[in-house]
Amino acid sequence: MIVTNMEIIPGQRIKQHLGLVQGSTVRAKHAGRDFMASLKNIFGGELKGYTELLQESRDEAVERMKQQASAVGANAVLNVRFSTSSITQGAAELFAYGTAVILE
């Protein structure tokens, strides 16, 4: 399964277009990390725990998108975009979407 954020793949032709596929996950931070983050809000600097958490969640969103793509029989997802939104205090949604296609 090729996942890319370009509209074409160099050297390969698109045989069939299968429409939009998406994957999303909502994650909350646990209290310990939240406490560390509030300390960092005083000192400044990178919040490593959050960086990892969001990266994991984004990977999971991509994984779900891939599952959806293989369910419709695609072998590639093109033009992938990411989006993040905070839903409530302490929880964020990570969303990935793209176009499922069959490549020759």
Partner: peptide
């Protein structure tokens, strides 16, 4: 010439300090 493609990403969460806030 022939190229292979892959999705790459990088992320960071960074906070401002109390004084700057």
């Amino acid at each position: 010439g022939p190229l292979s493609s892959a999705l790459v990403s990088g992320n960071v969460v960074v906070s401002v300090d109390y004084f700057k806030r």
